[in-house]
């Protein structure tokens, strides 16, 4: 299965849901999933896994676009059968980012989602155990990787001066 086939198949099955789909190279494709349409990210991932051979979630992360008021959740999904790596992105509103968990499809998303939750404050619905991963308890709610986080030490250490 080559990159163009994958994009075609995705566009056909989820018309109107998948946008900005592009073939970046022979081994990279990327697409946006529009949250407004009622097609959950879990359904898309299930389709990717069952029909297109994407059986390996290699990474899940997020980016804070403070000027656009958006948080983008990014999934890098790869396969053990073909060389194509899909970058799937979902835009969420920055003030209330909620998205469905994909743990039922890719089990290893569990800790990724907990980490995104503690650092960006993205709430995952249907996550089996949504707690912070390594952040200290009292820092939960600060969302330290958001661009407007204020809690950085604003002085260097004393003995540097």
């Amino acid at each position: 299965m080559n990159a163009q086939d994958i994009i075609d198949s995705l566009m056909k099955s989820f018309t109107g849901t998948i946008s900005n789909a592009e073939v970046v190279s022979d081994i990279r494709v990327s697409a946006y999933l529009d949250k407004e349409r009622e097609e959950s990210v879990k359904t898309v991932c299930q389709y990717l896994k069952d029909e297109l051979g994407f059986d390996h979630l290699s990474n899940e992360t997020a980016v804070d676009y403070i000027q656009k008021g958006e948080i983008e959740v990014i999934y890098h999904i790869a396969s053990y059968d073909h060389p194509v790596l899909l970058t799937l992105k979902v835009r969420l509103p920055r003030d209330a980012p909620v998205i469905e968990s994909i743990v039922p499809v890719y089990w290893n998303a569990n800790w990724y989602e907990r980490e995104i939750y503690e650092l960006f404050g993205v709430k995952y619905t249907n996550h089996p155990d949504l707690r912070q991963l390594i952040l200290p308890d009292d820092m939960l709610g600060d969302w330290p990787l958001r661009k407007d986080y204020e809690g950085f030490p604003n002085r260097t250490a004393n003995n540097l001066v």
Binding site: M139, P144, Y149, F152, P153, T156, A157, N158, N159, L160
Partner: peptide
């Protein structure tokens, strides 16, 4: 450990460790 090093502006590092422990050698 002396001053925070490359992570001196991080949200999660402790600075001025010499105020917490009696350090002999840096």
């Amino acid at each position: 450990s002396i001053s925070g090093g490359p992570f001196y502006e991080s949200y999660s590092t402790v600075q001025n460790i010499d105020k917490i422990f009696p350090v002999d050698v840096y």
